[in-house]
Design a protein around this nucleic acid. Sequence first.
DNA 1: GCGCGACTTTGATCAGGATCAAACCGGAGT
DNA 2: ACTCCGGTTTGATCCTGATCAAAGTCGCGC
Lengths: 250, 250
Amino acid sequence: MKMKMDKAIADTKECWNCPIKHRAVCARCEPEELTHLEEIKYYRTYEAGQPVIWAGDHMEFVASVVTGIASLSQTMEDGRTQMVGLLLPSDFIGRPGRESAPFDVVAVSDLTVCCFRKKPFEEMMVATPHIGSRLLEMTLDELDSAREWMLLLGRKTAREKIASLLAIIARRDASLKRHTPKDGMSFDLPLTREAMADYLGLTLETVSRQISALKKGGVIELDGKRRVVIPSLEALNDETGDDHEDDLIH
Amino acid sequence: MKMKMDKAIADTKECWNCPIKHRAVCARCEPEELTHLEEIKYYRTYEAGQPVIWAGDHMEFVASVVTGIASLSQTMEDGRTQMVGLLLPSDFIGRPGRESAPFDVVAVSDLTVCCFRKKPFEEMMVATPHIGSRLLEMTLDELDSAREWMLLLGRKTAREKIASLLAIIARRDASLKRHTPKDGMSFDLPLTREAMADYLGLTLETVSRQISALKKGGVIELDGKRRVVIPSLEALNDETGDDHEDDLIH
DNA sequence: GCGCGACTTTGATCAGGATCAAACCGGAGT
DNA sequence: ACTCCGGTTTGATCCTGATCAAAGTCGCGC
């Protein structure tokens, strides 16, 4: 049993068998480029709650999230913190061409990352355009999401913020399981109330209250503290403040 | 006089004489690559207040800001709006590989942009890595700034937001004039109170009140509505809530 | 079972900004 | 000179979300 397990893990460490190979920074690489990547990569794991990098630290590697979730966040001297991104499988950590990390990276759940030593990775970037072009595409996507998040942080009410977060997690969860979001679907919240508060620019008490309010309003149902059921996606979307793309489609 | 003027403008339209050539997306191009760019580029101008692109519009070009300032913003159905970026000279507008614009772009001041038809530009990107690598670098920088802005929007007080904005404009203004920011320096606010409010996630009344409060506190002095004098940069930085980089340096 | 600690909910009160409303300022046009 | 008008300031009040405080829930080790 132990051996079988080790074998299974070892298999996913090979690029051709990698669960994120179609979305990660290496997604456009040719087989021979992957072989080269194999040589400079190594896996690391972190337990939930462990720091991956502190802001200001020297970074000797860049990495892709393979499994689990990490958070990217900033803290002011007086302790106020703002999460500025959630890193999901296939997301990229670090920045070629930069010495030190601009933000804290912390494992939210148990986390596995595929690391590349920075120097060889940078050399490989200039040699193989497939990596740079994929990284550009990913970075542009992240910039768009960051800007959408700015609207949420600057202009949405607490209730809209919570509804937006739930809607996003619902969509992501559905796409992970490879089916479209559907009324009655359910999922587990990957974040504590405090982490949600840090992400949404609220306090944990307000998060808790607004979740209770959405439950009272019948927009969501709770099964324990963490499991959420969405009886009607339309009702949830109505609470986000976003324009209703669904209406436009049908 | 008229002819002389036209000559001066014509000169700046040539790449080798371009005021943003060392910072824009074309900064790393070789002379022959610039010659190729010359062929697919054209200038456009907009008056202050004019829209450049509406969110959702089909974009037939990408562009670099040459002179003036543009804003990038989002609006909710009920009219709440959030500015998600300020585009200054050398900043890039648009996104290769994307059909429609994700955000509104509006000229804040009179604006000149250097446009490239999207199709030829995209073709050139795959042919010449200098463009893609520079665009990647610029996009990574913008992502970092967007994330810093998320901390401001999510966690800073109104007073800290105003002080942060003034400090940023002061730094940018100094670097534009090629000298380091200095106590007693002054600059013109390029934004109306309303535009500042949209950028900072506040109302225009709060912006006005906090500017008055900073004046009353001696942190800034006003000369008319738009001109700001900074008697002490240290005092201003103390109000931003950011850690004081200056202290670390000396 | 018990107690402990991490996480969550709920309550009471406070305050920072939003909202509503009115007045003010300064430049452009007549 | 005058009005007009966009931009700005200031005042009064309201309300959302923060803060302070206490109790509730759940899983876990003993």
